[in-house]
Write a protein that binds this DNA or RNA. Structure first.
Length: 316
DNA sequence: GACCAGGGCGGCC
DNA sequence: GGCCGCCATGGT
């Protein structure tokens, strides 16, 4: 079988057709990286670091610690076949969408039956969703879903609430600088020593209280051991934590726990959904449920292509 | 100066 | 259970 990567001299070599490092880092799934110049990046994950250089036909990952090669192979999801995932997404057709029971979609808290005309409009807009998705896959062709550290993902996406990517990055770097050691992401123990006022002072705003609370809640919790819990229970547990609602939980499940059948719905995905289906007034939770019904195990990648496309193109 | 950013919480019904 | 106002901060 042809591998996605080769290893020489403790470096990982990946064809650019397999990984587009710019798209993968800048598509909004991760915040702790630095672009050092046009084709160079430094990626930080928990207490690990790697350098990335993009040359003509390939991208070269150099782990800071040669013992951590496998960590980065897993991090960049290099054993997964994205051509196959994209093929399956391209093959999604109207049949999948027509399986949806649109008659039971609640609008403004009433279970409205959708009229014939509205159904026609919806079918037209279903095609629009497929068209957007096709464009989005082409636009973000080299995106891979990263498998990130769970604790770092939790803290990062609590910060992300009603926030913009640049400020999220800034806050997370300050955390590495002022709470962690050696610019590593802070451990739970290090975070627990700081209080609400400290988090406010470094710019977390009203999310400061959530951070203080969740550190208390996570004391003595082994996050990695939660991987085997069934999806619904795990999501319920995450939502029970301070600062985590349905959307942040979905992001943690996707980017931290590697669960594929979740569909985080933020403002951008909501815009895509509304413009595609023409249905206004659904909660983001409901939109997420509908999209998971459509995309199933392809939800994670579909969501990321759509988010990157919508956010970069500033779709309305 | 209003509006927006990868939303969540608490209060109210 | 669903809806709504509020929550910090920095950028357009």
């Amino acid at each position: 079988m042809n591998k996605n990567y080769t290893i020489k001299n403790n470096k990982i070599y990946i064809k650019n057709s397999v990984l587009n490092i710019l798209q993968t880092l800048e598509c909004g799934q991760v915040f702790s990286y630095k672009k050092t110049n046009e084709n160079n990046y430094i990626v930080l994950s928990a207490d690990k670091k790697c350098k990335i250089i993009k040359v003509k036909n390939e991208t070269i990952i150099t782990p800071q610690n040669i013992l951590e090669i496998n960590y980065w192979i897993n991090y960049f999801d290099l054993n997964n076949n994205y051509d196959e995932l994209k093929k399956q997404l391209f093959n999604l057709n109207k049949l999948n969408l027509n399986k949806l029971n649109l008659n039971n979609i609640k609008i403004n808290n009433k279970t409205n039956k959708i009229s014939e005309n509205e159904l026609k409009i919806n079918n037209k807009l279903n095609n629009y969703l497929i068209n957007i998705l096709n464009d989005a896959i082409i636009f973000g062709n080299g995106i891979r879903i990263l498998k990130q550290d769970i604790f770092e993902t939790i803290i990062s996406f609590i910060i992300s609430a009603n926030n913009n990517i640049k400020r999220i990055q800034k806050i997370l770097f300050i955390m590495r600088e002022k709470i962690g050691t050696n610019f590593n992401f802070p451990t739970l123990e290090q975070m627990s020593k700081k209080n609400e006022q400290f988090f406010k002072d470094i710019g977390c705003g009203y999310r400061a209280k959530y951070l203080e609370n969740i550190c208390r809640q996570l004391k003595n919790v082994d996050l990695n051991s939660l991987k085997d819990i069934d999806l619904n229970s795990l999501k319920k547990y995450l939502i029970s934590l301070s600062g985590i609602g349905p959307k942040v939980a979905d992001c943690v499940l996707l980017f931290g726990f590697g669960k594929q059948n979740v569909f985080p719905v933020d403002t951008w995905i909501e815009k895509v959904f509304v413009s595609s289906f023409g249905i206004v007034g659904l909660s983001r939770e409901r939109i997420s449920e509908i999209l998971v019904q459509i995309f199933g195990e392809l939800s994670g990648v579909a969501q990321q292509y759509l988010f990157y496309f919508a956010q970069q193109k500033k779709l309305l």
